[in-house]
Nucleic acid binder design. Structure first.
Lengths: 183, 183
DNA sequence: ATTATCTATAGATCTATAGATAATGC
DNA sequence: ATTATCTATAGATCTATAGATAATGC
């Protein structure tokens, strides 16, 4: 039922749309159209819309932990969010909450996304024994900036210069990283 | 068409439900049931579900800026969020993003909620000339904690002691308030 | 012959409206 | 007589399935 390619294309289309609009606002028809198939085909290869959602858990922010080096992580994280805003790119951090709240199975989505984002953050810190507390605090702070800027439209460049924002909010994020916490 | 009381009861029920689940997940039938009327009555007094949503813009966090005094605002904000979690109460800060993203008219909802929350925060600071930058940064930081704890389930008491969290995240929030910014 | 894909449609919701009934005020 | 409220239902979507057709492999 469906070549592996079909399945892959469907999941990829779903990942993109769910990541942009959440679960409910995206219809099977939308996903099918983007993938270039009929809605029936999507159902056949995935079984249900809920299963499609689970298979298409949206991307963690790009693992480009490489770029922006030379700058401490806290500042780099903020800078990347503002760069995405400037370029009109999607902002994963602004969608996390909606993806959980709108998911067909909230508990599953919460566990999945929570784990994913916290672990990703721990990996970014790159300590020998990265503190889970630190990672979770960072997720809060970064998610707040993502949602504030992209969902509420706060801190637009006219209201606060990008560089000033990077310095101030970056310092906050960095202070969590440099903080004295351990598990 | 509907006594003023009816309208009030409907809006109150809607405010509660929308504040808990967002727009799409709440049906006119749900609101009607909670208010004690038929769905048709809700439609008659409000015109449409979208108009009902606009009339029922969810509450800003309780204007209990009074309590918790003796403690600086930054810590008090964090403390209140954790108290609501402990008591199983609704967390407005965790719903802001979803309310905007899921609204029938995103632009309207964004403008309305943005203004509301930023102004509320400015009022909390209580400076003679409260900085809008500060308020917006605070909204980001506080919203991040609300969403992180209540939507993603981060920083549960077993993972980080409440008081320690208040001290650390509270210090962050407070540092924004005490910071050198001005508009 | 089997697998991939589509068309057509059932069944479930949901918003919104039309028209009937019940309650209230004069 | 007018206002408040309900029942019944139209019309629009949406997910999911059944069954038909087209493509592929032997």
């Amino acid at each position: 039922m469906g070549r592996p390619d079909t399945r892959k294309a469907v999941i990829e289309a779903a990942r993109r749309l769910f990541g942009e609009r959440g679960y409910t606002a995206v219809t099977v028809k939308d996903v099918a159209a983007l993938a270039g198939y009929s809605p029936a085909m999507v159902m056949k290869v995935m079984g249900s819309k809920a299963k499609l959602f689970e298979a298409a858990a949206p991307d963690v922010p790009r693992s480009d932990m490489l770029d922006g080096m030379g700058e401490p992580l806290g500042f780099a994280l903020v800078r990347r969010i503002l760069r995405r805003r400037r370029n009109g790119e999607a902002e994963p951090w602004s969608m996390v909450a909606m993806l959980v709240q709108d998911a067909p199975n909230q508990a599953t989505a919460q566990a999945e996304l929570r784990e994913r984002y916290v672990q990703w953050m721990a990996g970014q810190i790159g300590d020998d024994s990265p503190s889970l507390q630190k990672s979770q605090l960072l997720v809060c702070a970064v998610m707040g900036l993502g949602a504030g800027t992209r969902v509420l439209g706060l801190l637009e460049p006219e209201e606060m210069a990008e560089e000033a924002l990077i310095q101030q909010y970056g310092a906050i994020v960095q202070s969590i990283i440099d903080g004295p916490l351990s598990d």
